[in-house]
Simulated scan of single mutants.
Amino acid sequence: MAALEVSNLSASYGGERVLGPLSLSLAAGERVALVGQSGAGKSTLLSLLYDQAGSGTAFMPQDLGLVDTLSVFHNVYMGQLDRHSAIYSLINLLFPLQKPRGEVQTILDELGLGDKLREPTGELSGGQRQRTAVARALYQQGSMLLADEPVSALDGPLARRIMDALSRGYPTSVIALHDVDLALAYSDRVVGIQDGHIALDEPSSRLSTADLQPLY
């Protein structure tokens, strides 16, 4: 069963085509890694996929979409805004309730941000901000994850810790990754984008790092 299926997707900027046309299908329970050099069209593809996906899809763009003036708790809590009434969310904005506070704290502990719950997001480092956006996606508990370079600001061991958490939280995902070793380790299938088109689409088990190098 397809979790997401798109046909003849394309995008143009300034009258110049930058993506497609291309078609892509994602099965439920499938983890796809998008690879390719910067500017190949990965971010554009993820944005178009999000436009086509259902409302339960979690989306983590490269710009993260955080509100710097709000605390880490509030940024993470936004992952479930659509599940609660405006009054309930307003109460949590002013005086975070015990249940959501505990749920968010558990996720932050898992991501190594346990001491940042009340800290303004604008005061965090780049890697901490990225993990806050990951925490928001995990808290959302959507049916599928679309993420654009979710660990680009993190080092090796920490990047794998975050990818482990995302893999547990989202069995169905499309994640753009510049690190080809992570792409192979945390996906069932690799889709390579080159000049706005799909240049490679293979199961990860059939690929090696050398197979992906021509895309860069």
Rank of each mutant, 00 (worst) to 15 (best):
A27H: 09
T69P: 04
F73C: 02
A33S: 08
L22G: 12
G39F: 02
G56C: 05
L81M: 12
S23N: 14
N75Y: 06
A40G: 04
G15D: 11
A53N: 04
L64K: 13
S12A: 15
G79K: 01
T69E: 11
T57E: 03
N75T: 10
H74N: 08
V32I: 15
L93W: 12
E30F: 06
V72A: 02
T57A: 13
L93Y: 13
D68A: 15
L48E: 07
I87N: 08
N75W: 05
S12M: 09
Y77Q: 14
V35G: 01
A27S: 13
Y50K: 15
G36N: 05
L34T: 04
D68S: 13
A33K: 00
V72W: 00
Y77E: 15
A58N: 00
G79Y: 02
G15K: 10
A86S: 12
S85D: 14
L93E: 11
G14F: 08
G41Y: 01
M60T: 05
L49W: 02
Q62G: 09
M78I: 08
G36P: 03
Y13F: 15
Q62I: 10
G36M: 04
S25Q: 15
A58Q: 00
H84G: 09
G29H: 07
G41R: 01
S43P: 09
Q62A: 09
G14P: 06
V67L: 15
L49F: 04
S55M: 11
G15C: 12
P61T: 04
